[in-house]
């Protein structure tokens, strides 16, 4: 086996200069697509992801109709130009699986029972990909759902953690994801304090698992405050409104 690449330097900094618990730069924007009912765009490290929500709308084909709730359709897709080597645009095994886990991460937050016999479509399009694109996709998709005015119990926010050079670190980028020895994407509903996505690969000790899990949640809450700011910017002109008095 080849000698594993050194991912943390002598000074304790990672390849891109971050400390172990530092996030990559993140920016979020809500309401970027005119024709979608709700949309959001996220820049997370080198990830550039667009999320769009359409619906609630009629379900086609009709046999998929759920009589008591909405059908939440999710598609995670990577553009052919999103990676160094052209990616075949047909949905791969990985994309189909990520579509499924994103759907299952979002469903607990959406009040699907409020929209019986309808479909709500969530499209997550990765325009440029880096590590942690599923959690970035979930973060953007939940903003797009809120922008579309779908009833939601809470926003959903994701963050990944992992192990590189036997150390637990936050927010792996592409190299760390590939060269490192463990990746743990986590999505949470921050107000409800519930986990909606938890995937793990690699080998963890109990201590490392606990540490990575708690770090992912803490960092997810940091991203949540950015989500709030993005919504405030779109809907409340960025500034909180003063309390008013009226009859």
């Amino acid at each position: 086996m080849p000698e594993p690449k050194k991912l943390i330097g002598e000074d304790g900094r990672r390849l891109d200069g971050r400390r172990w618990d530092e996030l990559r730069p993140i920016s979020l924007e809500v309401g970027v697509l005119k024709n979608a009912d709700g949309s959001a765009y996220i820049n997370w490290g080198k990830n550039k992801i667009m999320a769009a929500v359409y619906g609630p709308k009629e379900v086609h084909p009709k046999h998929q109709v759920l009589p008591d709730r909405a059908l939440l359709r999710t598609r995670y897709h990577m553009a052919p130009f999103s990676v160094d080597e052209r990616k075949n645009p047909a949905p791969s095994r990985r994309e189909i699986e990520i579509s499924k886990v994103i759907r299952e991460a979002l469903v607990p937050a959406v009040l699907v029972e409020d929209y019986p016999r309808t479909a709500i479509e969530v499209w997550v399009e990765v325009l440029q990909s880096d590590g942690g694109s599923r959690v970035a996709g979930i973060t953007a998709a939940s903003l797009a759902l809120a922008d579309a005015g779908i009833n939601m119990r809470d926003l959903v926010v994701g963050c990944s953690c992992g192990i590189i050079d036997s150390t637990v670190v936050a927010d792996l980028d592409d190299t760390e994801d590939k060269e490192g020895s463990g990746d743990m994407p986590v999505a949470i509903m921050p107000n409800l304090n519930q986990v909606t996505l938890l995937q793990v690969d690699g080998i963890y000790t109990r201590e490392n698992f606990q540490k990575a899990f708690e770090l992912a949640i803490a960092k997810g809450r940091e991203v949540y405050s950015m989500q709030r700011d993005a919504l405030a910017k779109r809907f409340f002109s960025g500034e909180p409104q003063p309390m008013e008095e009226s009859a």
């Binding site: 809120a146 009833n151 809470d154 926003l155 919504l231 909180p240």
Partner: peptide
């Protein structure tokens, strides 16, 4: 005149 408190909220906020 009774007071009405107004607040900007997003999904999940306690009113």
């Amino acid at each position: 005149m009774p007071m009405v408190q107004r607040k900007q909220v997003i999904p999940g906020d306690v009113i």
